[in-house]
Amino acid sequence: MIAFLIYLPFLLVFVIFAVYAERKVSAFMQDRIGPMETGKFGILQSFADVLKMMQKEDIIALAADRKLFLMAPLVIFVSVFTGYAVLPLSADIQGSAAETGIYFLLAVISLDVIGILMAGWGSNSKFSLFGAMRSVAQIVSYEIPLGLAILCVIMLMQTLSLQEISLQQVGGLGFIHWNIIQYPFLIVPFVIYFIASLAESNRTPFDLPEAESELIGGFHTEYSGFRWAVIMLSEYGMMLLVSLIAVILFFGSWNTPLPNLGPVRLADWTSGTVGQLSADVWGTFWILSKAMLMIFVQMWVRWTYPRIRVDQMMSLSWKYLTPIGLFMVFVSGFWKLWM
């Protein structure tokens, strides 16, 4: 319950800084300087954007299906944010203790497809409809390799609860206890997971659903003002969510990366005492900073690779990622049986 209360304000603040970071990262990648006018180094740029968005008129096209059009951004955001319910934040602060944990998370995330279809169909515009169709085809196909990659970790950990997965990665040797080091072949499921998660959050190279050069804005072409901001908020929310899941499953969740080296007890110093405030602060710090690193990688990928074609997107999912994912599930089973 408390984790949930921390994640909501954090998400809102995160989006403002992520938009700024995205601009600066893209500028750095392309040898530009990015926004510089608003405030020192353009740091107020995102606040100016928010102010502008609040003032914009909430335009609803006459031919649009009013009910679906108005509800769609809320459905998308609610379904993405419900996923945060089961995420832990530190050893003591855990989300819902639901036994199904990650299974529940995957199920509710798939609901944002319905919001996207509502937006695309409700807008009554061909660009929106095309964008929604592409988006749904993409999300539905990439859910399979994503699920298979997560299944590998679940088979090795033998639990669906994200907090229990985190607790199995605790130890005095820091990063040595992380899943990706303990089970080295998990690097393959991690790469599959990362590619699929880019597709799930509609990020370049998988931004076909909004492909601004072909579809204007994809499923959110007709949205303006605050409703558009809510759609953007859920896109960044999805980025943060998939990064947090990657950190929990593969990179030791809220555990410190620093090992105890003889008398230099780095792990103990940077973990705090369980049950006290120090453990919560350190746990929150580690899980969030690892997630920020993952988000930086997502931005890095976005500004490095061009957009792929629709047929390439489909063949990548069905011909490469899904068979490799199935094989890795097989490998995980053998590892669990004999190692």
């Binding site: 639901a98 036994e99 199904t100 299974y103 529940f104 995957l106 199920a107 509710v108 798939s110 609901l111 497809v113 319905i114 279809l117 169909w121 409809l129 169709m133 749904v136 539905v140 859910e143």
Partner: peptide, 29 residues
Amino acid sequence: AEFVGVTQIMVYIGGILILMMFGVMLTNR
């Protein structure tokens, strides 16, 4: 029946309904 509930969301909403929506929307347009 938590597991059944989540499976209900996964299978019926995530799978079958999306397929139905595709069908209805494409024929409609």
